[in-house]
Design a protein around this nucleic acid. Structure first.
Length: 945
RNA sequence: GCGGACGUGGCGGAACUGGUAGACGCAACGGACUUAAAAUCCGUUGGGCGAAAGCCCGUGUGGGUUCGAGUCCCACCGCCCGCACCA
């Protein structure tokens, strides 16, 4: 028997596919198309196993659809612009382009080793002028169409490095390199007016256009777009207040006008004009505003900050409560970009307002009475009530429901001429400006005389200038220092002008790449006719982390491209979406909190374990510190400590060190056992903490490279393992044992197929034998077809794989051929037929998962052509029917017996069979049967007492 | 803080619309083969009690609805993702 050798077999088939150009896609309007796309990778350096999972999923779908007769498009490219390339340039002195292109080279090679059915002829990288020139054309067309706008907005400014920081470069409010507190700074920037399309972007989530999307992603997008109906109204200044010049009150926006009578303050954003007006003459207020400005620009940072405010020297009048006036605060949790940049606070019914009111001793008047509460005793303590109820303490709104009160309050304010009902969106316009080199240049020129003018189309592309790699060591944007590139004559007047130095957000690159893959043209972003054939993407696959921004931007781009004539038919870019989970892997930390590579970690020897138990544990149990070379141990073993440890460090079983940063809090240490160590006893052994499920990253030193896996087990085993076990949408933990199991499977399949060389040639599969011979095996085969097909269709690859295992287990145990009536088979022909059929089906069912092995099996069995071109097997319904079913029998809801009945047994027969069962009789003895519930094909429940 | 998911044996997970909890894989243990090991094959494996038949407990925690709850409802705990300049 020949042993299966993936090192020979896998490259052989990849070469054969390539030679035959097996995966090149041709436009063929006569066949139904299927466009499978996985989110293209950022070329970070190496493919990691998470990529393998992502692309293996897409490949299963692509190969399956191909087998089903579709004209499949499955392209690949590179999301090649972005920050990491510039960071690498700073650290290594390598030019971002060189770094990126080298990474692409390396990753392409690795990706190709995975045996993906990709049409590589369509590959591109977004950093190529051949791609971004079209993006600049789109930008110009969008600009012409009014979708582009320049306006001021805030960035994170590092005052020491004098540079703009990305949110991820702001750590605890400080610049990651300089450590200086970050400031918010206003810059003129480019925006895409995506809010103009908010209504349609929202509507499509629910009107059927996105039925192929998971509900959770649609919900997230809905919330993100955040349409809310409310009231925009003005609080006039109180009579005793001298209104500042130019202000005739404070305009606020609220979604809860029903709570107007519970208002106890008004608050404005730190960057609200009113705040600026008073800060100009009040240093303390100016300080407070500046302090708020020091919080980063991210919504998360603002929301998490402690609620703080400062009173302004004005009061406003409550328009509905005669004589009542409210204080006006500047508060750090009000966002200028949302609504009116100002709110009225109703502490009883909003948690943030309540926290704020308690801090500043403001009134808390409940106005919504929860059902069943007594208005006399109902109090708000530390928790705001945001649920439904009846309005009280509210004059003309009393007795109304929340909904009705909202309507009534809006009507009243409108009648008083103080405001009007308004719809506001949480969605903001898309700021696309980045003050960086490594991105698509924005095709604009700033002229002293003509202002901002577009680069004429004939001058596209605006290519990135050559810049010395050393330039990246200086903070700031190298484009601003590239004088030759920067200074150009104005295209309108010919006078002196400067190029725009902002480049585009990399989300722009990925907002239309799917269209380019499908319909690239030399002289235009997309070929409309081809796009009409291929779009939308039928199945899009990627991480949930992109559930909002990337997908929303691509949806907007599709609309904008349609309106500017670049696309015609497509409504939504991605018809079906699947969001897959991450791949995690164990990571290790030493006692100084430094990540340790797995290669450096080992299990302790029995000696080391014994010594630890002998010398350390008794001392620890005696309640003493242990000062062991390099180690100490903790006095107590208790659940509380363990829990603390778990929450604080996320580890199970850990050992403290006598030195290092963690020493400060020895009460947080607990030893359970030594799982993993580095170094050697007697003096140098150092236990390490095990974090079993960490997202793979270079910094954690827990990245698993598919190369080494493919080296040992082959690409098929790696693909198989990545798809088995965990459901695709969930995170999966990479374990070495897991791949080893997959490797065993590869061999098991080969061991079954190997003895059957040429088996497919001996049978005519269009003519199954008309006998009952080997019916069991044929049933097994057809159940496997039905199950695997169903599971692939529903993206349950882990279950599809489990079914293949079941098929395989059954195939090995396949009983000697028998007729259904139990008589011996009447000849070897039918048996051989069933065997050959089973193997033929097996080769085709595994083809999407382990394509190399499948080709090898197919060729060995004598199949025609490639298995990747073979049609998907069809299950024969007649062979799927069950003759008998096993039903669980419950007595009062507890399972007591199992009965086997004919599949078509009627209710009486099932009841009789259940009651006749001996175990059942024992349990109902002495009781009266009150009711028998029969769920056909499932269960029988006898209720007796 | 806000929004969205998730929580089932030693581990990854399965369980369709509320109907036999633990499919399938991993690990572990026992056995076969072998001078031996690896590989392979066969078997056992949620916990407890029991010689066995069988009984009791069991899907993060506490409550509820139901003939019946992993699944539905309420509250809580834990963990993961996103929060607009990471991609």
């Amino acid at each position: 028997m020949s042993r299966y050798n993936p090192k020979e077999v896998e490259p052989k088939w990849r070469a054969a596919w390539e030679k035959a150009d097996a995966f090149r896609t041709r436009d063929d309007p006569s066949r139904p198309k299927y466009y499978v796309l996985e989110m293209f990778p950022y070329p970070s350096g190496k493919i990691h196993i998470g990529h393998v999972r992502n692309y293996a999923m897409g490949d299963v779908v692509a190969r399956y659809k191909r087998a089903r007769g579709y004209n499949v498009l499955h392209p690949m490219g590179w999301d090649a612009f972005g920050l990491p390339a510039e960071n690498a340039a700073m650290q290594t002195g390598r030019h971002p382009r060189d770094w990126t292109l080298a990474n692409i080279e390396a990753m392409r090679t690795q990706l190709k080793q995975m045996g993906l059915s990709i049409d590589w002829s369509r590959e591109f990288a977004t950093c190529e002028p051949g791609y971004y020139r079209h993006q600049q054309k789109l930008f110009l067309d969008f600009w012409k169409a009014g979708f582009v706008e320049r306006r001021e907005s805030y960035v994170n400014w590092d005052p020491v490095d004098m540079t703009v920081l990305a949110n991820e470069q702001v750590i605890d409010g400080r610049g990651w390199r300089s450590g200086a507190p970050v400031e918010r700074r206003k810059l003129a920037q480019w925006f895409f007016r995506i809010t103009d399309k908010a209504e349609d972007l929202l509507a499509a989530l629910d009107d059927g256009r996105l039925d192929g999307w998971p509900e959770n992603v649609r919900t997230m997008q809905r919330n993100w777009i955040g349409k809310s109906k409310g009231l925009r109204m003005t609080f006039p200044f109180a009579p005793e207040t001298t209104a500042p010049e130019g202000f005739d009150g404070v305009e606020v926006y609220t979604t809860r006008p029903d709570t107007l009578f519970g208002a106890s303050f008004v608050a404005v954003a730190p960057d609200h004009p009113l705040a600026a007006r008073f800060a100009a003459s009040d240093p303390a207020l100016a300080d407070f505003v500046a302090e708020c400005q020091r919080t980063g620009t991210s919504e998360e940072a603002i929301e998490k900050a402690e609620k703080k405010g400062k009173a302004l020297p004005v009061r406003v009048a409550h328009p509905l409560m005669e004589g009542r006036t409210l204080p006006v605060f500047v508060a750090n949790f009000i966002l200028m970009g949302y609504g009116a940049g100002a709110i009225f606070g109703c502490p009883a019914h909003d948690q943030r307002d309540l926290d704020f009111a308690r801090k500043y001793g403001l009134e808390v008047t409940p106005v919504v009475l929860p059902p069943g509460e007594d208005p006399k005793t109902f109090r708000i303590e530390t928790e705001a009530y945001t649920g439904p109820g009846t309005i009280f303490n509210s004059d003309f709104l009393n007795g109304l429901s929340v909904e009705d009160a909202i309507e009534a309050a809006v009507a009243k304010i409108e009648k008083m001429g103080l405001g009007e009902g308004a719809t506001v969106w949480r969605l903001r316009d898309w700021g696309v400006s980045r003050q960086r080199y490594w991105g698509c240049p924005i095709p604009a020129i700033h002229c002293e005389k003509c202002g901002v003018v577009p680069v004429p189309e004939k001058d596209l592309p605006v290519e990135l200038p050559e810049v010395d790699a050393k330039e990246f060591e200086t903070p700031g944007n190298p484009l601003e220092r590239a004088a030759d590139w920067l200074n150009v004559p104005c295209p309108d007047c010919g006078g002196p002008a400067r190029r725009e130095t902002d480049t585009m957000d990399t989300f722009v690159d990925s907002a239309w790449y799917f269209a380019r893959f499908a319909a690239a043209r030399e002289d235009a972003p997309v070929d409309k006719a081809k796009a009409d054939y291929w779009l939308p993407v039928d199945q899009y696959i990627g991480g949930v982390e992109h559930a909002i921004l990337h997908l929303l931007y691509a949806r907007w781009f599709t609309r904008a491209m349609k309106e500017t004539g670049h696309l015609s038919k497509v409504e939504e870019p991605f018809a079906r979406l699947f969001t897959q989970g991450m791949v995690t892997h164990a990571a290790y930390k030493d006692l100084h909190g430094q990540w340790v590579a797995q290669e450096d970690v080992r299990e302790p020897t029995p000696d080391e374990k014994a010594r630890f138990e002998r010398e350390i544990v008794p001392l620890w149990k005696a309640g003493r510190y242990v000062d062991f070379p390099g180690l100490f141990q903790l006095p107590a073993e208790n659940e509380e400590l363990r829990a603390t440890l778990k929450t604080k460090f996320g580890v199970d079983g850990f050992i403290g060190a006598a030195s290092g940063p963690f020493h400060a809090e020895p009460e947080n240490w607990l030893c359970t056992e030594v799982n993993r160590v580095i170094g050697q006893l007697p003096s140098g052994v150092i236990p390490v903490a095990v974090f079993p499920n960490e997202k793979m990253s270079k910094s954690k030193k827990n990245v698993v490279s598919p190369e080494s896996i493919a080296e040992t087990y082959g690409a098929d085993a790696a693909r198989w393992f990545m798809l088995s076990d965990s459901p695709p949408e969930r995170d999966v933990e990479w374990t070495d044992a897991g791949v080893a199991g997959a490797w065993r499977l590869v061999n098991r399949i080969w061991d079954i197929v190997e003895p059957a060389a040429g088996a497919l040639k001996a049978h005519d599969f269009s003519k199954p034998p008309q006998t009952d011979d080997s019916i069991e095996l044929r049933r097994l085969t057809h159940r496997a077809i039905a199950g695997v097909t169903e599971d692939i269709e529903h993206f349950r690859f882990n279950k599809a794989i489990a079914r293949i295992y079941e098929f395989l287990n059954g195939l090995k145990k396949a009983p000697p051929a028998k007729r259904a009536d139990g008589a011996p088979a009447n000849g070897p022909r039918a048996e051989a037929y069933a065997q050959a059929e089973a193997l033929s089906v097996l080769a085709r069912l595994i083809a999407p998962f382990t394509p190399h092995l499948a080709e090898e099996c197919w060729a060995h069995l004598g199949g025609e052509g490639f298995v990747c071109d073979a049609p998907w097997p069809e299950a024969d319904p007649a062979l799927l029917a069950q003759e008998t079913v096993a039903l669980g029998v419950q007595v009062n809801g507890k399972r007591r017996a199992e009965i086997v009945v004919p599949a078509d047994a009627d209710r009486q027969a099932v009841e009789a069979a259940a009651l006749a069962d001996e175990a059942v009789r024992r349990h109902v003895e002495g009781k009266t049967v009150r009711k028998i519930v029969v769920v056909p094909g499932r269960v029988v429940n006898i209720v007796a007492n």
